[in-house]
Amino acid sequence: MRLLPACRPYRRIDMPDAFEFLSQGINGVVMGLLLSTIAVGFTLMLGVIGIINFAHGILFALGAYFAFTIKSLFGFWAALILSPIIVGIIGIIIERLAIKRMYGKDVLFCLLLTFGIAMSVEELIRMVWGKLGHSIAAPSFVSGSIDLGFMLYSKYRLLLAGLSALILFLVWLFLEKTSYGAVVKAGAQDSEMVGVLGNNINRLRTFVFGFGSALAGIAGVIAAPLWSVRPGMGNDAIMPAFVIVVLGGVGSFWGTVIGGLAVGLSISLAVMFLPRVSDLVMYILAAVVLLFWPRGIMGEKSLLEE
């Protein structure tokens, strides 16, 4: 047995330093909040209406594209307000014309219908706005970095986190503190109950679809400066939305927030330590949760079961 020399250099593992860790951690939270915002509309639609809306990603994209157009005309704040409203209206139209014919049928029909819608609208986006992406500059007051004292961090990301948190807070307020919100929340957990309680189910579903679409839209607006605006951007939204719903449980607000943060943080951690696996991480999480805790962390609804 050979004795090792006392000061033989060992192979250094490339550990991130504390600042990199912190910066990526904050990135993870920012991303997580954005993803939760994307997913919250999706989970409400799934919970209350019982549909898997593949078109959620494309509504997100529409939000970004409308913002792009409106911003160049009227500025960022106008885009932030108007774009979700337009997307919400489009959502209502889609629901009235197409989705509602699928109620009562197997969930998979709706999946296929919304898949077709996503496909057509994505191409429509290419037709109207062109194949190549556009970049949206962040509003001037948040361009550049801010000095947090111990490190620099992107101002826009902080605003993004703030806006996401605000939107999530407003949704929470709606669900918890308003009477119609209570109906929506109850419906997200058990849609049959809501009908029994005498609420107009059709109007509720239309509302939730419109509301969920508007949420997708506003998520698209705030994500646009960070992710840039491309026709395929919806795919980057729909997949995490699925994963988050799986992780957090169907129709659960807090489940969505926790799920979103879980996804955001695992991606940013993976980017730090195992960058090549970072894309895979959320799917591995989803598969593991689906196999062992099918209802997710906080889900009560057994929609996914037969």
Binding site: F242, A287, L290
Partner: peptide, 11 residues
């Protein structure tokens, strides 16, 4: 059902 579908999507 849908569980199966989502798992296939993830994989």
């Amino acid at each position: 059902g849908v569980y199966f579908a989502l798992l296939t999507l993830a994989f």
